[in-house]
Structures are given as C-alpha cells and as structure tokens.
Design a protein around this nucleic acid. Sequence first.
DNA 1: CATATTTTGTGATTTGTTTCACATCTTTTT
DNA 2: AAAAAGATGTGAAACAAATCACAAAATATG
Lengths: 227, 227
Amino acid sequence: MKQITKYVIKNSLKRIFLYRACLVRLKLMGVERVYSYTLANETGVNSDQVRKDFSEFKITGNKRGGYNIDELLEKMESIFHRNKDHNLVLIGMGNMGQALSKYSRFVQRNMNIVATFDIDPFKQKQRSDLPVYSMNRLKEIIDRFRVKVAIIAVPEISAQEVADELVRHGIKGIVNFAPVLLKMPPDVVVNNVNLCDELESVIYYVHKLMKVDGIKNLELLYRDMKY
Amino acid sequence: MKQITKYVIKNSLKRIFLYRACLVRLKLMGVERVYSYTLANETGVNSDQVRKDFSEFKITGNKRGGYNIDELLEKMESIFHRNKDHNLVLIGMGNMGQALSKYSRFVQRNMNIVATFDIDPFKQKQRSDLPVYSMNRLKEIIDRFRVKVAIIAVPEISAQEVADELVRHGIKGIVNFAPVLLKMPPDVVVNNVNLCDELESVIYYVHKLMKVDGIKNLELLYRDMKY
DNA sequence: CATATTTTGTGATTTGTTTCACATCTTTTT
DNA sequence: AAAAAGATGTGAAACAAATCACAAAATATG
C-alpha cells in the first residue's frame, strides 16, 4: 500500500545536530567539558531545553560536572550511526546531482556515494570522480554495496518512477530534491528538500520583518519564526 | 547587537507550500475547484488541518462550494510576494554555488539571481550564464538591483565574514548553505540548509524503522516522525 | 567533615499545535 | 419553498512541546 510520504525532521533532532556542530567546533578550540548553558549560548536555545533534548535521546552528563565533549560526541555518533559507513546512491546527474556528487562533506561524515545514475548516456561519459551508470545497473550496485539510502535529483516528471524502482530494489530512505510528494510504502522514509521553498520562506519572513512596527510586534514575530 | 540567528520554518508555512504545489498540479490537470479534503488526500494531512492552516493565513473559501483553485493560488502568491520579482545575489561559486546558479526553478518562481560572487578570480572567468564578480562589487550590485536576500554557498570558514558584509550592505535575508550558525542582528532572517543533516536524519529514521517490531511501535514511530 | 555552591535531570506548569465537533452558510433535491 | 445534504470556519478539547522550578548529586570551600 502506497501513500503520501511527507516527513518532517523533529525539532529536537534538528537541535541535536546543532549541538553537535557546536561541540565539534568547541573541541577544535581545545574545550573539553561543556555545560548545558554553554551549548545554550552557542546555539541560541535555552539550557533547559538542551537538557530536555539530551534526556529525550538518553544522553546523560555529570551532576555539577557538566558534559565531557568526547563522550557527548561519541554518544551522538552512535545515535546517528556515524560509527558505521553508509553507502548511498545518487540518481540524476543534472546540475544538482553533479554538485551533490562532489559534495565532500558527505564523505567527512562517513556517507559515501558509491555510484551515480542517469538515463542520459552523455552524462554517463562526462568527467566525474564517481562512476555514472545507466539505470539498469541499479539493482546490481544496490545489492553489492548494501545501499539503504538514496538521493533523488532527477526532474520532477520522473521522480516517482525512480523512487518506485529504488524501493523495489530495497531502498528504505530517500532524500528527494525533486519538488514532488512521493507516494511510497509506509516503511520508506522520505525527506523532501525543496530549495525554492527555503528561499521563499526567507522572502516571506523578510517582508514580515520589514512591515513590523514597534518592539512588541517584533517579539511576536520572533516567536512566530520559532527564533 | 549580534546573536545566533537560528530560524525554523513553521510547519504551517511548510504545509502551505505543500498545498500550493498540489494546487499547481491539479490546475494543470484541469481541476478548477478543490475541497479541504481534496488537498488533505493529496498532501497526507487531514482536512481539519488544511482549513485551520488556511484560517491562519487568512485564506477563505465558500461554504459548501470549497475553494476556487485560481483564487487560492492568487492568494498564496500574494502571501509569498510572488507577484513581485525578487532579485538575489549568490556568494560562492564552488560546487554548490554553480549548481544553484543554474537552478532554473528559482526563475520560474520569480526569484532571479542577478549576480554571483567569488573571491577566486579563476571562477570569475569560468563559463557561466551569470556574471561572477569579485567581492568588491557587492555593494554596487546590491544597491543597483535593490537586493534584499542572498544565498551563501561559501566554505564554512568564511561564511560569517561574508554574512557580515552582506548585512552591512543592506541584506535582510540569507539562505545559508555553509554548516555554521551565523551571528546576525535580530532583524536579519537566516535559513540554514544543511545537506548532511538532511541525509543523516534519513539514516537515523531508517535505522529506527528497521528496528521496530510490531504495529503499535510502528505507529508510535510515525507519530515521532510527524508523518 | 560539614556547609555552600553548582549543575544535572525531571516532574509540574505553561504555552503551542492538532484534532474534534458543530453551528453556519450554500447548494441541491423533492 | 421547505427540507436535506455538503462544506466551511472556528471555539473547545486533546495532545505535544517548551519552560519553570526544584530535588538530588557532585564538587568545592572553610
């Protein structure tokens, strides 16, 4: 049974990403131990929330002693399964696909695009650090590298078809850059990334901010923006 | 006064984007009138929520008659200021920057990147449909095209510096692809797009789904994912 | 070693969001 | 023209998330 797979990253999870980014930076600066209020200051959330979030993800510290950065980071890595390697496939080698295929941060975070795919044979010949295969080799690669997660960067017209094929071959998670809501079985996770929407929402809030008069309304707006 | 500018798109706003995408599709299919449950089915939210969201954004329909697609779309366009053109600048012509500069959907939605910038003179000479300027022409372009919103696609090391300069020249909204939390004055809107986080969160939920046994836990998980 | 201080972790409270339920208006049917 | 049916719009209720507040633990101090 297929259904619309619209999935939103929980805010608490987003904040965990935030905390981690700060921890990495602090560690580089030589800091060894942090307190909930350290992270609060660095990330703009309040310290109660930091602790509540940690509690949700079963992260504990030392009463009075705060948190040891290394332990925290290790805990977070295990939460996100970063201790393991993750093989990915990328479908669609247009603009966005090519940029993603060269995006070095994925590798730094143990996420490896093992192969890319495109229907256009010309793109398959193009110079690229990664192999560009035609779609008929999809199953072979997914099986060989035990791929569970795919990135879709194809035109919207073919996104659903591609997604269906991926799922048939065992893919369980999709980051979808095509502006379509995919209809998927309920055991497949889909995260839609829509760049236009990201931009438009900024434009929306900028207009709202410019129209605001008086400090009280400004505070209301910040609340609205979940500042 | 600068502060961490961490900003989250409200879920109701995200759903409005969703509704709009559906409406556009339905219109192409020749549909003229929709009901709250039509949109509900198409987007996977429930019909009460559709109506509540519309109410939040002051969108009204006809009792019994549902909503006229053209009117709805027009209303939404005015909410997002799509009736006007929006000039953007893009800073950083690395992988991601180059992909974004060619991203045709921005133009389709009345968002025009009028110029791109990079510190590397080589990239400035590279073949591109858009001019690639060095940073010292930033002010001139921002003024000439009345640019209010910028896209940052520079390495994380220089993101804060670039953002500061943008704000000095009057930029009020930023879509930031660099994995850094920018410290900005409170009247500047920042939307951080972090591709690694998007991928990792999918990996996180995929692992969670695979570990789930029994239908009850599955439902709990869906709730957790705000399915 | 007792007391003071600091910070965590978590129930209790408040605030925000989603769902429910129904009055209201509009159209269709008889 | 009255009754029935269908959809909206919105208070009320239920649920979820964020903040408050404080007991408990760990460390520091005298």
